[in-house]
């Protein structure tokens, strides 16, 4: 994105996917692990989650989807996965390797 002071938040709100509030981290992981362009990455994640591409950035839908699949939430609710435990579920759902998860398993 570029040097952060005073403007990274602006980009996050103006064009960002929404991070763990929605499916931003999941789409990012497909770009990073499979080198997918944005449209392909969104479609892949949407298909795996069973939602529309539009809903990938819809907080109302994605909060429920993240709860259902236990993919990590903005609020650390009791009984739901946090940190590396959530990444274990993400790796399984997206069928990708996540480096730290792989190392934890081995």
């Amino acid at each position: 994105m570029g040097d952060p002071f005073g403007m990274a938040v602006t980009h996050a709100l103006a064009s960002g996917m929404g991070g763990i509030r929605t499916a931003g981290d999941l789409v990012a992981r497909m770009q990073m692990s499979r080198g997918m362009k944005i449209d392909a990455a969104k479609k892949y994640v949407a298909d795996r989650l069973g939602v529309s591409v539009i809903d990938l950035a819809n907080e109302d839908v994605m909060t429920e989807v993240r709860r259902e699949h236990d993919l990590g939430l903005v609020y650390a609710l009791p009984g739901y996965a946090r940190g590396i435990e959530a990444k274990l579920h993400i790796a399984r759902l997206l069928d990708i390797e996540i480096n730290c998860v792989k190392r934890m398993r081995t």
Partner: peptide
């Protein structure tokens, strides 16, 4: 809506 993109960072 639908045109959102992924944000990576440097030096945050």
């Amino acid at each position: 809506r639908g045109n959102e993109i992924v944000l990576t960072t440097d030096g945050v």
